[in-house]
Design a protein around this nucleic acid. Structure first.
Length: 105
DNA sequence: TACAGGGCCGTAC
DNA sequence: CGTACGGCCCTGT
């Protein structure tokens, strides 16, 4: 809302765009990179509300447990996009050990 | 300014 | 491994 501060939302977008192909990040990591490690919840909701990101990169964001979580267009679509990106999704979950990406890297 | 919603997280049992 | 509880945060009206 404020104009002076960098919106958490905008920050998330920037981060999402930095995610390499075939990689995913957790809401926690995203929120953390955005500035607040505890804003994981808000991070996901923020995207959902906007659901108009550059290319709906929100599909690259999953839960800390590896579950794909939710998606504005449906989990089904989210999984499809992840697979198309090279991320293997099994039982609605992703191997964070393989695809988890950190902005600190 | 205040309220409520929400795609969550981490811990505990 | 699954469910349950509480807590933290951001955005929109």
């Amino acid at each position: 809302m404020a104009f002076g501060k960098v919106k958490f939302k905008e920050k998330c977008i920037e981060l999402l765009r930095r995610i390499p192909k075939g990689r995913v990040v957790t809401y926690a990591e995203l929120a953390r990179a955005a500035g607040n490690a505890r804003a994981a919840r808000a991070a996901g909701m923020t995207m959902h509300c906007n659901k108009r990101f550059e290319e709906f990169l929100c599909f690259k964001v999953v839960k800390s447990d590896g579950k794909v979580g939710g998606y504005a267009f449906g989990v089904r679509e989210k999984i499809r996009r992840l697979k198309r990106d090279g991320v293997e999704v099994v039982k609605g979950k992703v191997d964070l050990k393989k695809y988890a990406f950190t902005f600190s890297c």
